[in-house]
Amino acid sequence: MGRRSFLRALGLSGAGVLLAQSAWATLRFARAPVSYGPPSKTTLGERGRFPRGAVTYAEAARVFVVHDDAGLGAMSAVCTHLGCTVRRDGEGFLCPCHGSRYNAKGEVTGGPAPRSLRYVQVEEDRRGRVVVDTDVEVDPDDRLKLG
C-alpha cells in the first residue's frame, strides 16, 4: 500500500467514524429523558363529584368513574383499537374513529377493538380526593371501598 492510498484510507475511515458518531449523537439528541405529557396520576377532585349509581366522565384523566355499591372504579375511555376517546352510546360506549362498540361494563360488543376497555387504579389522597393512575391496570371488578 502506497503512502497516498494509505492517507486516502485513513481520511475516509476517519470520515466514516465521524459520520457514525454523528448518527449516534443524533439519535440520542432526539430522545430527551423528560416528558411534558400529562402525568399518569391525576387528581380528579372530591368524591362528591361522583354520585353513587352513576358513571361520570372525568376529562382530566380520560376515564369513566364508576360509583356502584362496591365502591369507586375507573374505566379508561381510551379505545383499545387505536386510542381514540370513546363516547357514551345508549347503555354502552362507541368509538367514533372506527366504530368499536363496548357494553356498559366495557366489554367489546362489536367493531375492530381487540379487547375490552381497561380499568385503572383509583386511590384516595390524604385529603380524601379521588386520584387515578392510568398507568396501573386493575381487574375490572376492583373497587376503591368508600368508608
Binding site: G14, L18, Q21, W24, Y36
Partner: peptide, 29 residues
C-alpha cells in the same frame, strides 16, 4: 488529519460525558 482526529476525539469526549447522565428523569410539571 490533525483536525479530523482531534474532532473524532472531541466527539468521543462529548459522547462519554453525556453517557454519565440519567436516561430517565422525573419532573414535576
Amino acid at each position: 488529519f490533525t483536525s479530523l482526529f482531534a474532532t473524532i476525539a472531541m466527539v468521543f469526549v462529548v459522547l462519554y460525558r453525556d453517557a454519565q447522565r440519567p436516561v430517565e428523569l422525573e419532573q414535576r410539571l
